[in-house]
Structure formats: C-alpha cells, structure tokens
Design a binder for these strands. Structure first.
Length: 561
RNA sequence: GCCCCCAUCGUCUAGUGGCCUAGGAUACCGGCUUUUCAUGCCGGCGACAGGGGUUCGAGUCCCCUUGGGGGUACCA
C-alpha cells in the first residue's frame, strides 16, 4: 500500500515542521493542597518545576488542589503564596496571576470534573459503588485478621448508572470508581526509566467521593490535560499513583505528560520531615526544627541559601562547585541530572551555605532580608509582658544554664529587640550587618548587636560573664572600669580611631593585653561577652550611653556580692 | 504481608568500563590569624553495602542477598 505510506509520511512531515516552527511550550505546574505553609520538600518540587519552565522558556502554573474539604486550612493559600514569593519563585498562571486555563482552584472546577466523569460512566470505564467507608474498613480489617491481602473486588453485576443515581438521590453514600483495565501498566519516567506495575496490584479506585468532589487522581488528570501540562515533576511518593493516572488518560483519550519522580527529602535520622516534628520538639522543650519554608524565614535564613541548598538535594550540576545564584541554576539545570537517591536534609550544611550567602549578597539585599527577618520575628512575638519568664518552676539544670545567654528582655513590658531593630535606620542596620560579618543566620546578628537597641536599664549582667571578667581577682575588672569611665568621660572625639588610641594607651601603661580591657567593657556595655569589635561597638553606642552603662555596671557591683 | 523504587565518605554529591591511588562540599579533628563571638587561611581523617557473574579490565553492566525508602484511603 504505497499510497497509505505516502499519506503517513506527508502528515508526519507537516507535523514535524510545525513543531519546529512552534515548538510546543513546556508547561509545568505545582499543585499544593491548602493545608498550611509550604513544606520544604514541596519547595524543592516547586523549584525544579520552576527551573524547568524558566530554562525552556515555558510556563509555570500554580494550581490549588482543594478537593478535600475536611483538611482545608483557612489561610493556607495566602501562606503558600507568601512562601513562594519569599523564595523568589514566581508563577505565570494561578491564583492572583490568572491565566486562560483557569480557574486554578479545583473547588471551582467541579462542573468540568462532572462532565468528564459522565464520559467515563457512559463508556463503562467507571461505575457507581455503594460500599460505605465503614464497610470497606471492616473488609480490610477482616482481611488483615485472616492474613489475606485486601483488594477491592469489583461488584459483579455492576450497578447501572440509573441505580447509582437513584441510590444517591435516596441519600445513600455513593462513590464512583474507575475501572482499571486489568493489564500490567508501564510508566515511563524520565528519572527512573520504565516501571511496570502488575495488573493484580491495581484495583478500581475512587474518582468521585460521596460528597461529589473528585479525588486527587481524577482532578489531577483532568486538569493536567485541560491545562496542557507537558511535564509532571513531583515527589517519588506519587510513583504508585502514576499507573492510575495513565489508565485514566487512556480511557479519556488524553496524551500523557512526561513524568519525572523526584527523590524524597528526609530528616537526618531518616524519618520524614513532618510538621509534627515541631510539636514533638516543643513538647520535649527543645527548639522546634524548621520544616516549612516559613520556619526557615523566621529562623533568619536567606532565601538565596535555601534555594541553592535545596537545589542540590537530588540534583547536581556535575562540577566541583556548588554555590550558584538562581540565574546560574536556571542555566545549569536539566532533568537528566536529577538523581534517584533520596536525600537527607543536613541543617549544618544549610547553615554554612547561609553564612556564605550572607557574605556574598549585595549590602542592600542583605539589609532588606534582615528587615524581613526582623519584622517576621516582631509579628510572631508580640511585645513581651512581665509574665514572659514563666513562673520560675522547679527550675533545675537546663533552665538555669539557658537563662543567662538567652535573649530574654528585662521585666517591664517592652517591645522585643527585633521589633526595635526593625524600625531602626537603614544606615544603622547596614553598619550593624557590616560589623557582624561572618554571622551564620540573622539571630546571630541580634545576639551580637541587639545591645545597641535596648535601653540602658534593660541590660542584664550575665552572672557567668560578671564572675569571669569582672569579679575575679578581687574585682579587678570593676576597678578597671572605674578608671576607664573617668577617661571615657573626658573623650571629646568619640570615634573608633580616638577610642582605639585611648584604650591602646591604657593597655601600654598597665602592661596588659587588649583582651583584658575589652572584655570588662563588653560586659559593662552589653551585659555579656559577645559583641562586635569593641571600638566599633562603643562608637555606635555613643558616649552618653556607654558611660551610663559603665556607671550602672560599676554600681551593680555591691548588689551582687 | 504484597507491589514498586533506591544503594559512593556521618551528610549532600561528582563519577555513564581504563583518565579512580575515587574528586568537591559540609561536618569532624589539628595548626595559624584574632579584643569576645563568628569568620578567614592551611593541613588531616573519612566511602564504592556483601556475594556471585560478564569483561583483558567494574564504583561504573547483569543476578542474588542485605539495607533504606515509597505505596497499599471516599488524603493529596
């Protein structure tokens, strides 16, 4: 049949030229369900999708999968959007962006799902099923008791569409199940290769729930088709869902997108990173680990560091370098460099990345990020009252040790130091950031330079520091402060240079090392032993406040002996 | 239990049959710098899970074992 062959090649040729002219745009999506903030693992999934879109000049779509009305958490869409924005990942279509394939909330697409559901019902690829959740649970339980594998067995005769509708109209809980084809299904995965699932492990599954909402599987397949999604990059936990999706695509006559299942991210101990880790840690009185993107934001990480770090979880550019800007990552990214091995989330390495990024970004960028951190802190820690230090319980061990260097402010209801800093001058904050260079995360900056932003009376002298640098040797440190106070009061040029000259002179006169004089000053002025360089610290504090604090420190001596 | 995926330093990874005496990063250890903290600089420790094949040659290919993980919902 030469004629037939000819026709085929002609069609193929025209198709080919067409694809050369207008190459099909890559369209990828991230489809979170609104159950809270964006999980860090979810962020990695977003990132890879976003990278692929940006790399190829395609579109990145955000779709909200809100088909489970029982799990819906009120504010989550706004939170997820905020997290995404903070990370610097924008979306071309979706909430707030619009787009021609909307609506992008699945709860607003129910009619669409119903229409496709009808097609499946009519073609016999789906059927009404009458078992209640309780009945199903009982059957599973029974199977477990008898050490049998449970799998849903398709009712024989199947209820007709009319019977199903009648039952539903009568108020019975009715679902719609998809009829699996009864053959093995092979999924082609861009990362994992071909994966075949045996037919007998593939049971008929629910595609419409009793509340008439579609299940994830169904809505996802319909929307991916209608939104013309070309690539699905998602976590490996979805791998076993894929044959279901493939089977539905075939029944509906949809072309399957390309699939790529990403390795999963775990805690260092191999457990899943879960929101519940936070509650557990709090219960044990430990600092909760960061799990959601917002946690990292509130812990003072830079999005640059987070993005860079998670990009390396399951992907590598293959060079002996690993710190890249987002733009560099876009140009380096490719799906075939994504690995198959699950990764553990190493916070130590993240911290190192953050430290490096903090030293690398432009000063203005760093300032903006610091301000953001400060205001997030201020917002989540409303002004603390006197009740802040909880009623001094059976306070043994840990509490005692934690108290001195913690950042608890003094008794009176006072705004947290972060809130004060958030409103500080740009020039001041920029200077603070400069002086704290080398910090790991923003809380380090607050710990180190916060003393500049509290009132003189709010300085609490850390007993350990006092003992070590002031009280020992019969209060030598206090004596030194007395002398210094006199000299400092006489300083007219309150500058780093003058201060440095003065203090060095004192060192020479007394034959002591700088440390012996810097430390007492630090304690007097900050309450502890940590601050930026002492000269810069004093300069920033100013003469009035410096001398006031030294005076107050010296006077506190009698009080604590 | 059943189905599926995975396997290089503690951790993230490079490695696509000879370039591997296995590279980088981080952590850890040591030294130097230093006014505290944090940095910075230099050096060190440290891995191909085990067993069989294939091949002149295997971290790289195949099989088994072991280990880890995922799935097994009217969740997504």
């Amino acid at each position: 049949m030469p004629a037939g062959t000819h026709v085929t090649t002609t069609r193929l040729a025209s198709w080919m030229t067409e694809t050369v002219d207008k190459k099909p745009r890559v369209r990828v999506r991230f489809a979170p369900s609104p159950t809270g903030y964006l999980h860090i693992g979810g962020a990695r999934t977003v990132l890879f999708n976003w990278l692929l879109a940006r790399k190829t000049g395609g579109a990145f779509i955000l779709r909200i999968e809100d088909t489970d009305r029982t799990r819906h958490v009120g504010d989550s869409v706004r939170k997820i959007l905020d997290d995404l924005r903070w990370l610097g990942l924008d979306w071309d279509e979706g909430p707030e962006a619009g787009g021609e394939f909307g609506p992008y909330f699945q709860s607003q697409r129910l009619d669409t799902y119903d229409a496709h559901l009808d097609r499946l019902l009519q073609s016999g690829d789906a059927y009404y099923a009458m078992e209640t959740p309780e009945e199903l649970a009982a059957m599973r339980e029974k199977a477990r008791a008898e050490k049998r594998d449970f799998s849903y067995s398709r009712p024989d005769p199947l209820p007709t569409i009319e019977q199903g509708k009648a039952a539903r109209d009568a108020g019975r809980p009715v679902v719609v199940r998809f009829k699996m084809p009864g053959t093995d299904i092979t999924v082609v995965d861009e990362i994992l290769g071909e994966v075949t699932m045996p037919a007998d492990t593939l049971e008929d599954f629910v595609i419409q729930k009793a509340d008439r909402f579609p299940t994830y599987h169904f809505a996802c397949v319909v929307d991916d088709e209608l939104m013309e999604i070309t690539h699905v990059l998602r976590g490996q936990e979805h791998l076993m869902n894929t044959p279901k999706h493939v089977a539905m695509q075939r029944a509906l006559g949809f072309a399957a997108p390309l699939y790529a299942h990403l390795p999963i991210i775990f805690n260092m101990d191999g457990s899943k990173m879960s929101k519940r880790d936070k509650e557990k840690a709090i219960k044990r009185g430990e600092t909760p680990p960061e799990i959601e993107v917002h946690d990292f934001r509130a812990s003072g990480y830079l999005p640059e560091a987070i993005i860079n770090f998670i990009s390396l979880l399951g992907w590598s550019p293959g060079a002996d370098r690993e710190q890249f800007t987002l733009e560099e990552t876009v140009s380096l990214f490719s799906v075939d460099r994504i690995g198959k091995t699950n990764a553990k989330f190493d916070r130590e390495k993240l911290i190192a990345f953050n430290r490096d990024w903090a030293g690398k970004v432009a000063p203005d960028r760093l300032l903006a990020a610091f301000r953001d951190y400060l205001s997030v802190c201020a917002a989540s820690n409303p002004p603390t009252g006197p009740d802040d230090i909880d009623g001094a319980g059976p306070g043994d061990g840990p509490a005692d040790r934690a108290a001195p260097d913690s950042d608890r402010r003094g008794g009176a209801a006072e705004a947290p130091v972060e809130a004060v800093m958030a409103n500080a001058d740009a020039a001041v904050l920029r200077r603070v950031l400069e002086l704290c260079a080398g910090f790991r995360t923003f809380p380090d900056v607050v710990k180190k330079a916060g003393f500049l932003f509290v009132s003189d009376d709010a300085i609490e002298f850390d007993p350990k520091a006092v003992k070590k640098v002031l009280a020992k040797n019969d209060g030598a440190g206090y004596a030194l402060l007395d002398e210094l106070l006199l000299k400092l009061e006489g300083v007219t040029d309150w500058s780093v240079g003058a201060l440095e000259a003065l203090i060095n002179r004192v060192c020479d006169e007394k034959g002591i090392k700088l440390g012996n004089i810097a430390q007492p000053l630090r304690v007097a002025v900050t309450g502890g032993t940590i601050s930026p360089s002492i000269f810069e610290s004093l300069e920033m504090l100013g003469k009035v406040r410096t001398t006031a604090r030294i005076r107050r420190c010296v006077e506190s001596r009698s009080a604590d002996v």
